[in-house]
Write a protein that binds this DNA or RNA. Sequence first.
DNA 1: TTGAAAGCGCTAACAC
DNA 2: GTGTTAGCGCTTTCAA
Lengths: 350, 350
Amino acid sequence: MAATLKDLSRETGLGLATLSKYFNGGTVREKNRLAIEAAVKKLHYVPNEVARSLKTQQTHAIGVVIPELSNTFITSIISSMEDILRKRDYAVIVCDCRSDPKREKEAVEFLLHRRVDGLINMATDPTGAHLKAAMNDGIPILLVDRLVENLRGKVSAVIIDNAHAAGQAVRKLTGLGHRKIGLILGSPNLYTTNQRLTGYLNALTEAGITPADEYIRYGDYTMDGGYQAVQELLKLKDRPSALFVTNFEMTLGAMLALQHQNIRVPEDLSVIGFDKLELFGEIFPDLTLIRQPQLSIGREAANLMLDLLTSREAVPHRIVTLTTELAEGKSVRSVCDQSNFDTKEYGQCL
Amino acid sequence: MAATLKDLSRETGLGLATLSKYFNGGTVREKNRLAIEAAVKKLHYVPNEVARSLKTQQTHAIGVVIPELSNTFITSIISSMEDILRKRDYAVIVCDCRSDPKREKEAVEFLLHRRVDGLINMATDPTGAHLKAAMNDGIPILLVDRLVENLRGKVSAVIIDNAHAAGQAVRKLTGLGHRKIGLILGSPNLYTTNQRLTGYLNALTEAGITPADEYIRYGDYTMDGGYQAVQELLKLKDRPSALFVTNFEMTLGAMLALQHQNIRVPEDLSVIGFDKLELFGEIFPDLTLIRQPQLSIGREAANLMLDLLTSREAVPHRIVTLTTELAEGKSVRSVCDQSNFDTKEYGQCL
DNA sequence: TTGAAAGCGCTAACAC
DNA sequence: GTGTTAGCGCTTTCAA
């Protein structure tokens, strides 16, 4: 069907090596260059990447294994990664494992069979067992967003400083006198969940506040989860005066719940959300939030992977930690100025 | 590095052909089967899909070109497709073209170079020019969600009956006496936008209502767009009494805008939304909406592609049209029972 | 059932 | 700068 180098050779009278060199950026006599270009056009020649892969032992394909395709944080990272990788002629093979460790392992094996050059993984299995085969194969592995304890020092990663991010948010709130701070986390036992919880607890401790379990909720990183978590928090006899929500979807759900319950922000409750400033744009323009640089995460991940791929020597494993930013809005205020201000509790305001 | 058939041959003393046959489901003497299995284990043999691809001229890879990765409708389709395709050992290479026709064309070319076996495309370029090369190559092409006029009869597709879907919604509203029905569409000139508009217009005409331009808004299929569109509609001196929003994100934005403006649903305004019943679950449990079967779209697309791929003969081009469902909630009511009911306008209620 | 050998389309020595 | 050649790892006649 499609033309091959051999066809080009016949057409131009040139040898295979010359043609190959031409297509790989080598220098060719002007006359021949023209001949080749003419033949390419005539025969609609397109290099066969499969044959090239077999020969070079490089597929120019990167496997990406993620827990969920329907999460804007994840898709925006993938989007930015894919953009960069494709520009460098790497294909991205996406495998959605539905947060199922078994599927995740299968996905890794599937990709290994296809001889992907590298693996990018937002890990579902916290033990990292699914990556064992890939480690044996010696292909570059890059963790994104979530570290895997057992693999520490063995693979590279691009993450954000979750504990710090949560600390930023909570410190902002304690600084405004809040002592009852609700926290809505993702699923239990996830790396990011744990880290953000740690940051929250540390910041409270710093401020001399004893954390209360009832203020800590798990919203599964979904809109509905965030919505529910808020409902529960509002049922508490001793409601929090402030709230920190730890991803985009849950923030959305939380804001909806607050509206439904006619809780004013920040008059009745201070809120710090997470992610996606642009999307909140017109809708909650004044929402204070922790902003993760998902584009940078994707970019860093893609570039780090390209590094790992192209460096002759084994690159030492690198952990790139990106920083988050506290985007100030108007959704927080001093507890003393909130409707639920209580002199007895907050004498310091006086 | 990795073991090859040759290694296995050496290890077992068997010929390449025997081994190859074994791995392709052929029958082998029991004794040899055992020997092979032992050798596979010992050498960690894994078939090299690249070599296989070169020989068979099939990559077992499907290219998927989409306008945007950060849209839940799209990702849920991809997710369901990828699941099925991977089970059949097809890799999915995703290319996000950011709704840019130029990038879309590049993506198609990129995939063609990699010799994907088939192409699944949610078209950005309405002219279909980007698919020309793929058509020439003769690989199966499958459009999803959006038809391309110029390609009618030339490629297969999986779509929903958009005009009917919109008709369902609008007829529901006209049936309840509404005559001023706001419509929030996606970006202008998209296939789905046009179709849904057609359905809306037809249903109005059927009911003897003259469509008013000011009730028709374009929200770009984004949450923010939906939010803004509602704001504009509410500014109208002659506000609509009902609203039909044509995708998930815009529905979310619209509902937020309504809450912000303290518009009660359905007391003040009847609303029919779109998509993702589950996600709205706890949050807007009573929202009436048009439900697209995205899982089925993904499933049908994957299966149709597999058909196209495996059928010896050229399968005739097929358009699979899936139906939408009107999921009844409590977000619509008769105009006569709404707060904005006006005797002069709606005499028929009396 | 099994094996030998050719070849998929390309790259990379190597010799010219 | 160009051509010859071997071979990447597999499948697939074809004979045995």
